[in-house]
């Protein structure tokens, strides 16, 4: 697991430092969660070919989707 980048996003009016990792050739994003293990999210491909954000492991789909959108916005802004 190699750290390649870290950046900041604003989530619910608070800054969050996101760490980007490359794991098994796939970009993963580590989101700090106060008092808990960090949340790891990535994009996956659905059966219809649609790309969606997901937590790894399962169980935090809504959070993964909302933070994933902010990560996408960060990369769009910094293109």
């Amino acid at each position: 697991m190699n750290a390649v980048n870290s950046f900041e996003i604003i989530y619910q009016d608070r800054p969050l430092v996101i760490q980007e990792l490359s794991l098994s050739g796939r970009p993963m994003f580590v989101v700090p969660v106060a008092g808990k293990k960090p949340l790891v999210i990535t994009t996956a491909t659905g059966s219809e070919g649609q790309v969606f954000w997901t937590s790894i492991p399962e169980g935090q789909q809504a959070l993964a989707a909302s933070i994933g959108q902010l990560i996408e916005a960060h990369f769009q802004k910094n293109k």
Binding site: A44, T54, A64
Partner: peptide, 10 residues
């Protein structure tokens, strides 16, 4: 996976 339909490979 996480409630979203994915292929077996994915």
């Amino acid at each position: 996976y996480n409630g979203v339909k994915v292929t077996r490979i994915e």
